[in-house]
């Protein structure tokens, strides 16, 4: 294995360790936010936003999604469409409350 190749893997390792530290910081922030005296909606939105950042770091860098082949993106686009549909149906169903007239 060439030195350049070896060096690029070492750089990659350093990057992954930084991501690990970032995920730890994100987790700490989430826990801190959960005990903060904020409105419930704001607190939940904050926590889920940090969770999404952590998820992006893991999926993007550790799973190499930011530099994957087109085929993987195609698979994931379909997944995202179905996932949005799934969540959309849930929210739609929640609004679909039967009107109990006279009850």
């Amino acid at each position: 294995m060439s030195d350049a190749h070896s060096e690029s893997y070492k750089n990659y390792t350093r990057k992954c360790l930084l991501i690990f530290l970032a995920v730890l910081c994100g987790t700490g922030l989430m826990v801190g936010a959960s005990f903060a005296s904020l409105a419930s909606g704001v607190r939940i939105a904050m926590i889920l936003t940090i969770a999404c950042v952590n998820a992006f770091l893991v999926a993007g860098h550790l799973m190499h999604l930011i530099s994957e082949r087109k085929m993987v993106y195609i698979v994931l686009v379909f997944t995202v469409i179905f996932f949005i549909g799934l969540m959309g149906l849930t929210i739609w169903a929640h609004a679909d409350v039967p009107h109990l007239k006279g009850v």
């Binding site: 959960s34 607190r43 889920l48 999926a59 799973m63």
Partner: peptide, 18 residues
Amino acid sequence: WHFVDLVWIFLFPVLYLT
């Protein structure tokens, strides 16, 4: 393994923190 970690990244805040 990273996917399993990813799922936990959402499970933890949703179940424990919100």
